[in-house]
Every structure is written in C-alpha cells, then in structure tokens.
Computed example of a mutant assay.
Amino acid sequence: MELTVRAEVKNLKFSYGEKRVLNGVTLPIHENRVTALIGPSGCGKTTLLRCFNRMHDLYANANYDGEILLHPGGINILGKEIDPMEVRMRIGMVFQKPNPFPKSIYENVAYGLKVRGVKKKSFIEERVEKSLQQAGLWEEVKDRLSSPATALSGGQQQRLCIARALATEPEILLLDEPTSALDPISTRHIEELIQELRKDVTIAIVTHSLHQAARVSDYTAFMYLGDLVEFGASDQVFTNPRDPKTENYITGRFG
C-alpha cells in the first residue's frame, strides 16, 4: 500500500540569531502514521517539531530557511504570506507539561473553535464531546464539564490538552514529550491513545524514551547536533540502523 505524504520538510535550516539549530533537514511525514523524533538533548528535535506550527514566531531573532510543505496543495507553511494562526489551527500541539487554561473543562475544549469564530452552540457541543471521546476522557468528565480543568489529575489534564488540540480537527498533531511529566499508568493511557488517534490524524512526537518511540511510532527520525542522521520505518531504525551514530545512540553508547 502506497503511503500518502501529509507534510514534507525540505532542506530546513533554523537559527536563533547567530545560533544555528537545524542544518538542512529533509524528511516526509506520512498521513495517519506516527513519526517519532529521537536524539540526545539539544539535537534539534523539539526545534523541528515547533517549526511545524510556527511556535518560534513568538520569539525574536527566529530565522527559517527552507520549506515545510503541507499536502495536498503543497503550501509552504513557513512562507511569509502565511498567517501563523491559521497554521496553528491546521496543526495542533500538545506540550511536555499539561497546560490547561484556567477555565472549565468545556471552555478549554471549545476555546479553539470560538477563536475561529464558530458561534453555533450545538456544533461546539458536538465537537467538545467528540474531542473528549477521541482523547479517552469523555466518560470521566461528561458530568462535570463546568468544573475547573485545573482540578483534573495530571494524566487527565494532558488528555484534556489533546482534546483541546483535536477540537479544531487538525491535519497534524504535534506531541512534545507528552508523557514526560506523567506517572506510568497515565503514560500507558496516552500511548494507547496515540495508537487510536492515528486513525484520524497524522502525528509527530518528540520523545526521550526510546522504548516509547519503538512502541508507538511507525517511522523514526534520529537527530544529532541539528542534523537528521537517519530516517526510516521504526522497526528498521531500532533493529537494523544504517548509521553507526544511530546504533551508538540506541544501544546507549552515548546520549
């Protein structure tokens, strides 16, 4: 079965002022698959992930060079004429630490729709319920949607953040170490959720856990010092890496 490429990174360089962080990265992101970005701290994986929804635009001296093409259509989402807010609606992001807004559970999930100008209450209610179901949280919160989101447990808060990201029906979901602040049971919930969500959305995940990358991803990109060293099917990368650097990292010779 031929895979559809949902997004394409082409010769992407990125720097903060004089500091170069990415050195001409090129890789595909396949539709309805999970792509893991792995590598030691400071290798550029989170920087690459944040390029996808223009998070770096929020800081001064951020410089992109190269393209990230969103298919179908081949729109370069790094183009100066492209509105970063529109990019963030099409590409959702969930961060390392759960960050619910200081609002009710319902208002957290409805937030992105309201920002988009959606006013129809029945449509918003439908999307809130569906997103919470997709995030595996509906049964736990359906009777307390007006309760503060901050009253939820850490694992529930992270699933709420996933529901909030899903509410605007993004084409790609970015997960930046989504379980690093969670206990093992919550981590398992999120990993199971990722496997379910790939049916509906294309996912890119940054993780420090090689075991997690091997468990949840279809494709893995190994990065080192701003370079993409190796990209391939996760089974191949973890069992038969082509590059000695990849093998050294996966076997724990450096990290």
Rank of each mutant, 00 (worst) to 15 (best):
V5D: 10
V5W: 08
V5S: 07
R6K: 14
R6T: 10
R6N: 00
R6Y: 02
A7V: 07
A7Y: 01
E8R: 00
E8L: 00
V9I: 09
V9K: 05
V9C: 08
K10W: 03
K10S: 04
N11M: 06
L12G: 01
K13L: 12
K13Q: 11
F14Y: 15
F14P: 08
F14V: 10
S15H: 10
S15N: 04
S15P: 01
Y16P: 11
Y16T: 04
G17F: 13
G17P: 14
G17C: 13
G17V: 10
E18Q: 15
E18S: 15
K19G: 07
R20S: 15
R20I: 15
V21S: 05
V21W: 02
V21E: 05
L22C: 09
L22N: 01
G24F: 10
G24D: 15
G24V: 13
V25E: 04
L27H: 09
L27C: 08
P28R: 14
P28M: 14
I29K: 05
E31M: 11
N32F: 08
R33D: 15
R33H: 13
R33E: 15
R33L: 15
V34E: 13
T35K: 08
T35L: 07
T35H: 08
A36I: 15
A36R: 14
A36F: 09
L37R: 11
L37H: 11
L37Q: 11
L37P: 12
I38F: 03
I38E: 07
I38C: 03
G39H: 07
G39N: 02
G39E: 01
G39F: 00
P40W: 01
P40C: 09
P40D: 12
S41Q: 14
S41A: 13
G42I: 11
G42N: 10
G42F: 05
G42W: 02
C43L: 12
C43E: 15
G44W: 10
K45M: 09
K45V: 13
T46H: 03
T46M: 02
T47V: 06
T47K: 11
T47A: 03
L48K: 06
L49T: 05
R50G: 07
R50N: 04
N53F: 01
N53K: 04
R54Y: 08
R54F: 05
R54D: 09
R54S: 10
M55L: 15
H56M: 13
D57F: 12
L58I: 12
Y59A: 15
A60M: 12
N61H: 12
N61D: 14
A62M: 07
A62V: 09
A62K: 07
A62Q: 08
A62E: 05
N63V: 10
N63A: 08
Y64M: 04
Y64W: 03
Y64V: 03
D65L: 12
D65P: 01
D65V: 11
G66F: 07
G66Y: 06
I68S: 00
I68F: 00
L69Y: 04
L69S: 03
L70D: 02
L70G: 00
L70W: 00
H71A: 02
P72H: 03
P72I: 03
G73L: 06
G73M: 08
G74M: 08
G74K: 04
G74N: 00
I77Y: 10
I77Q: 07
I77H: 01
I77P: 10
L78A: 00
L78R: 02
L78C: 04
G79P: 07
K80V: 09
E81W: 12
E81P: 13
E81M: 14
I82C: 02
I82R: 05
D83Q: 09
D83L: 02
D83R: 06
